[in-house]
Amino acid sequence: MTSNQIMFFIFSAVIVIFSILTVSSRRILRAATFLLFVLVATAGLYFMLRFNFLAAIQLTLYAGGIVVLIIFSILLTSQVGQKLELPSVKKRIFAAFAALAGGLVCIFAILQYNFPIAVTDLSTERTTIDDIGKAMISTGKYGYALPFEVISILLLAAMIGAIIIAKKRKD
C-alpha cells in the first residue's frame, strides 16, 4: 500500500463518515461542524491531486466562508441545544431507497467503465498560480475571461439580492 493510498483512504473515510453524520445528526450545530470536516477532507484530496490553489480556495471559501455563514444563520434561527425532530420512518425509507438505488447504479456504472489512463505519476508537476491567473484573464483558447466576468456579475447580484431579501422591511 503506497502512502498515497493510505492518504486517500484516510481522506475518503473522513468524507464518507462525516457526510453521513452531517445528514443524520440531530443537533444542528454539530451537523455544521461535521460538514466542516467533510470540506476540509475534500481540500485534502485536492492537495493530493496537486491542486494547491483550489485546495486553498476550498479551505478559505467553503470552510471559512460558507460554513461560518451557515453557523451564523443557525444561531439566528434555531435554538442550539434543541435536538431536531426525527423524520418519519416512511420518509427515511423512501429517501434511503432513492439514494441507495442511485448510488448503486452510479457505482456499478463507474466500475464497469474502463477509463483511459493518461497519467501515472505527476508528483513533480504542479499547477502554478501564474498559469491560473493567465488563463483567468486570457481571451484565447482555454481562456476564461468571459466566465470570470460573468461570475463576478453573479456574485455582485447575489450580494445585492441577499441584502435586499434579508433586510428588515419598514412596514
Binding site: 423512501f94 429517501a95 432513492a98 438505488a101 442511485g102 447504479v105
Partner: peptide, 20 residues
C-alpha cells in the same frame, strides 16, 4: 418540496438505468 425532489431523483435514476 421534498416530495417533489424525491420524485425528481427517482425519475432521474430510473432514466439513467434505462439509458444505460
Amino acid at each position: 418540496l421534498q416530495q417533489y425532489a424525491w420524485v425528481f431523483i427517482t425519475g432521474a435514476v430510473a432514466l439513467t438505468l434505462a439509458f444505460i
